[in-house]
Amino acid sequence: MLKDNRIRVITGHYGSGKTEFAVNYAVKLAGVNKKVAIVDLDVVNPYFRSREKEGFLSDLGIRVIGSSIKGASSDLPAISGEVLTPLQDETFEAVLDVGGDPIGARSLGRYHEYFQKGKYDMLFVINANRFETQTKEKTIAYLKNIEVQSRAKVTGLINNTHLLRSTTIEDVLRGQELCKEVSEELNVPIRYVSCIENVAKELPKDIEGEIFPIKMYMREDWMS
């Protein structure tokens, strides 16, 4: 995690678990005393956006940058000028949570100049249980589309194959196979294998990518 470049862009199909990954990632970075900003660039989804967790994240010392219009109920694609702060101020570790499809990724285009080789990482989250990213061909098409819209190259894959709380080790391993195929075809490494903690314990230690256990911060207890 600390080896990743300072600017981390988390992208992928909605439902892949981007926001959950981004929030967990930011929390872990803050846990090792880093100065962290999480930027919610989601202009696509009306619910389950990282800005909803502003209180929780701020308490951990994480700066949350969301819409310039306050209120969780805002459905306007307004992005704050403050987004530039963690991109320009190099004392920040920046985590950008991007809206879940190629249209959502378009908002990244405006920050193109900050995505220089060696300065940023764009991590593409894959959930093989999402219907649009179940095969190598569809996943690569989706990834490419996001690259075109965002004008940035994906530098790493995250296998986050899940079925929420009913995720099994089989789900993760099946997702890993898909990620391997994508990885080989595109020559992009699998950087993380993320899954709920009780499944993470069971994963083979030699799996490609860093095992990244996550908590489900975005789901209320009553949700499956």
Binding site: G15, P46, Y47, F48, N129, L163, L164, S166, S224
Partner: peptide, 10 residues
């Protein structure tokens, strides 16, 4: 309710 529309589930 909106949650049924927006929530992800298997």
């Amino acid at each position: 309710d909106g949650m049924i529309g927006q929530m992800m589930e298997p």
